[in-house]
């Protein structure tokens, strides 16, 4: 564990130095990320200037759905930014060096880049989420908060599974660099409560592409709208997906024959 912390610290410091040495680029990317969140937030607030609820949810509740989506999305990016360049690492031969280093190749690949800009973006999102959660002081508040926390963590685990699957694909095929962006694009649907989508589409977002499990379940559990069966489903799904992604990663690495040097 200590070894991994040391590797993480080293890689993160190098990423930070790289970002500081490109101030204009870093500020541009940071402002872009903040603007994206701010505009959507302004949109939600502006909409509620004209309506009282959306699919039965109030402004605070809808904002909580949006913020939860951001927590899951940004956390996955912080943890797995390196996966975005997995194909390049494989085709240029860097991955061969990761394999001979005395730490997990997946960890090494993921931590190649630690995006401090995402970490900075996450801070205001967490603060706003805390402020909104505080407004719902009701009986069972503590239990609901715990459920929200664990289901959000569960969502990050599902997002991690998708990233590991994509990394496995990159190692196997050296081609699928776009897969991660397709995942990111589809995640756009998580910005709104899943109740907004029709019943059939909701089923799709719950069982096929579990975006609803990732972004809507934590909030619904917090609001006391999620049954124990669905909570159990969310945890089981995350466990299965995470197990599957690790198995896929291991078999991909086992079949890897080096594509460059």
């Amino acid at each position: 564990m200590k070894k991994y912390l040391r590797v993480w610290w080293k890689m993160s410091s190098m990423s930070l130095m790289a970002q500081i040495s490109h101030p204009l680029g870093s500020v541009g990317f940071l402002l872009g990320k903040i603007v994206r969140i701010a505009f959507f937030f302004a949109f939600i607030i502006a909409i509620f200037g004209h309506i009282k609820n959306l699919a039965g949810y109030s402004l605070s509740e809808t904002a909580l759905f949006f913020l939860t989506f951001n927590i899951v999305d940004i956390s996955a990016q912080i943890l797995f930014r390196g996966i975005y360049s997995a194909r390049r690492a494989v085709s240029e031969g860097d991955f061969d060096f990761y394999l001979i280093q005395p730490c997990s190749a997946l960890f090494r690949l993921s931590m190649t880049t630690f995006d401090f800009l995402d970490a900075i973006t996450l801070l205001p999102v967490l603060v706003m989420t805390g402020q909104i959660l505080e407004r719902f002081s009701s009986p069972g508040f503590f239990v609901h908060c715990l459920l929200y926390f664990f289901l959000t963590f569960n969502a990050v685990l599902i997002a991690s599974s998708f990233h590991i699957l994509v990394a496995g694909l990159a190692v196997r095929t050296q081609e699928l660099e776009n897969t991660i962006w397709i995942y990111r694009d589809i995640m756009f649907m998580g910005r709104f409560p899943s109740d907004v989508y029709g019943p059939l589409f909701q089923l799709f977002l719950t069982f096929v592409l579990p975006i609803a499990v990732m972004t809507s379940f934590p909030v619904r559990a917090f609001l006391g709208l999620l049954s124990p069966q669905w909570i159990a489903y969310a945890f089981t799904l995350a466990g299965l997906l995470f197990g599957l992604s690790l198995w896929f990663w291991k078999t991909s690495v086992r079949q890897y024959t080096s594509s460059s040097s």
């Binding site: 490109h22 101030p23 204009l24 680029g25 870093s26 500020v27 541009g28 990317f29 402002l31 872009g32 603007v35």
Partner: peptide, 8 residues
């Protein structure tokens, strides 16, 4: 570093 401003 023009990628940042373009993204923004």
């Amino acid at each position: 570093e023009s990628g940042g401003p373009l993204f923004f």
